[in-house]
Write a protein that binds this DNA or RNA. Structure first.
Lengths: 160, 160
DNA sequence: TGTCAATAGATGCAATGTCAGTAATTGCGG
DNA sequence: CCGCAATTACTGACATTGCATCTATTGACA
């Protein structure tokens, strides 16, 4: 992936864009991970789960819903929730209509920890990520990549 | 809902930009990981190592250099190299001047596997990532995030 | 009602990653 | 030359993750 600055052949810019995503993610997340563990004693994966529950109606989600929304550890969710539950931040509850299902709910303690951790986490992200971009760049990246989250991107994988 | 172009309050766009980075990375990488394992029988972490060696002068790097450049698995490099070496894709060699050191070199087989894997990997990235962005968006993201890789971003972490 | 595929989670095992501690080597200061 | 801190890489204990499998429950249907 060397020389393709040629204006007649702009299609290779995605490689640099991808590299940027890769590096930004890795570097910022590494710092944020360290910081969170030091301050709060739990990793970003926990905060991800807590935040999903926080945003959910009733502060609770079924395992499967959690799995769909969670960025990290698509699998292994059972044990992840085990640990968070052991720490008292969430609680498993039976689902009224379906005896197979389990609902994971935020405990009051979990909510407190979430609030504190989230604020500090965002501060770190702002310092390490947002602060390195101009407002225009922030807007551009947000617009360009919006499709990856508020969008469904199943499509092109059908053919296996 | 979309109007935050307000100059008095532009600072919140980085949150959406960050979310985009997070999601794009996670979703695209997950697909690429599966694909690579299926096709080549090794994970992206291997390709990362192979690519670092490929780009290095003499197709070789010391463990520490490898660790600094590697995006994935900052730690655990010893065992990672163990595995790749066991597969015959790299070879450990003593360093002439320093008997503590170890140089990790790409084998001919490693080079072949790298070439093939890299091409296919890039194809997947293009399909899953590049293909979802317009050329203008690709350019914008590449420009905005360039600082995270060709740049040094040590600075603001000094105070711990 | 009995059978069976589908769904929701959990579990076993192997692979991988993390962290602290170890061993060998180097280079400095006396 | 000798002791000692720094550097380089590895090892072992342990936590986490991924994958395939397993159990329980549900819902469709004959």
């Amino acid at each position: 992936m060397e020389h393709d600055d040629d204006p007649s052949r702009p299609a290779t810019r995605w490689a640099d864009a991808w590299r940027g995503v890769l590096f930004a993610n890795a570097k910022v997340l590494r710092i944020a991970e360290r910081d969170l563990v030091e301050r709060e004693g739990f990793p970003v994966a926990w905060l991800d789960v807590l935040a999903q529950l926080y945003d959910a109606p009733g502060n609770a989600l079924r395992m499967q819903e959690l799995e769909e929304r969670s960025l990290f550890t698509r699998s292994g969710l059972t044990r992840l929730v085990d640990r968070i539950e052991a720490a008292g931040l969430v609680r498993r509850e039976p689902v009224p209509g379906d005896r197979r299902g389990v609902s994971v709910a935020l405990t009051p303690e979990g909510r407190r920890r979430h609030d504190r951790a989230f604020v500090e986490h965002m501060r770190v992200i702002e310092r390490e990520f947002g602060g390195r971009l101009t407002p225009a760049e922030q807007q551009a990246v947000a617009d360009a990549l919006a499709g990856f989250w508020h969008g469904d991107l199943e499509s092109p994988t059908t053919a296996g």
